[in-house]
Design a protein around this nucleic acid. Structure first.
Lengths: 191, 191
DNA sequence: CACCATATTGACTGACTAGTCAATTTACGC
DNA sequence: GCGTAAATTGACTAGTCAGTCAATATGGTG
């Protein structure tokens, strides 16, 4: 017997992430991915049935990693306000530390290449956020409007905020941008 | 002599918009575009040097149309608050009336297929918005934080809001979602 | 060591696609 | 109606790319 090598699969995924981010999806042939990953064409198709399968796997992974990063220490916070602020800081921190993964998510979130099921699985990681908003409304911290709408705008605003924070290299400047942005979001939501 | 036919060029652009929205950019061969537009392959390349040129032209058009729609009646409003609300309503209205164009813009805003110059031209239509925010800060209506950051978050939030409003078919429901969303944005910005 | 299931290879294929061009049609001025 | 310059055509080309497969290397097991 011989076991599948996690190394090669990881190499393929990592290389694909970089190349997709730099050259876009359609601009990155599988031949280039395998070449850069130091692997034969056939090996790529041994680990991933199709190119689409590779993309999907990558998308699922990155999305789930992002979701996990966002939850970090969330249960330590008591109020909805503090939870949301922690969440925002986590998200911004992860985005700034992982610009390639962020760009990948942005670039392909709307892409027809990513299967519907991957999209749905991607969203499922963030459903707990809606509950968070719901709780905040119940105890009067958050304005009483449709929670899914609130959540949707909040997510977009956060994504715009991170994109804007990435424009500067100065960490202090970034901190300030993120602080102001999170204020914006909180003032928009609070009761 | 013989003049270029605006009809054919328009047909190509309109067909391309629909197909790109439905099938994505890479998934839409030029042969299909010309076929659906009722035109020969060569005609497409008579009006557009390359496929990229076609995309760019379409992107510029849609972006400029959107910008124009957003400005409608903006100078009628006096306060920054009213201007922003009018702007938001215009944007939401246009997006809801033109879902295909909106989807096209969303889908390709981050795409590497759209040239950098087209991106820049696209943004230039919206620079006046930053001035609007700046004015609001100067007369104390809007919180005194970096205007470009504020503008950036505002734009993202607005885009998320429209996407969410498009999920329902009920016009009254939509009106409510948009109203709530614009409240969110305004509470986030006001001094 | 010998066996064998599995991982890995890379040349190859079939399908597809952006863009070309020589031939043909069109419509306008004279 | 004739000449002409530009518009339109579509078969064709040169190249690319996802995915295959027969051959080979690898490493665990008995």
């Amino acid at each position: 017997m011989r076991e599948p090598s996690p190394d090669k699969q990881e190499a393929i995924l990592a290389t694909a992430l970089t190349l997709f981010t730099e050259r876009g999806f359609a601009g990155t042939p599988t031949s280039l991915i395998s070449k850069e990953a130091g692997v034969a064409t056939g090996t790529l198709f041994f680990y991933f049935r199709t190119k689409e399968d590779l993309i999907d796997t990558l998308y699922r992974r990155v999305k789930s990693e992002a979701a996990q990063a966002m939850c970090q220490g969330l249960d330590k916070e008591k109020t909805a306000k503090d939870k949301l602020r922690r969440l925002g800081k986590n998200a911004a921190g992860w985005g700034i530390q992982n610009p390639a993964k962020l760009k990948f998510m942005e670039q392909f979130a709307y892409s027809p290449f990513v299967s519907t099921s991957a999209h749905e699985e991607g969203m499922s990681h963030f459903l707990f956020l809606e509950d968070l908003v719901r709780d905040g409304i119940r105890n009067g911290e958050i304005r009483d409007v449709d929670p899914s709408g609130l959540f949707c705008i909040m997510a977009s605003a956060l994504s715009g905020l991170i994109a804007h924070a990435l424009l500067t290299d100065d960490p202090a400047e970034r901190e300030k941008i993120i602080g102001n942005g999170l204020d914006f979001i909180w003032f928009g939501m609070k009761a």
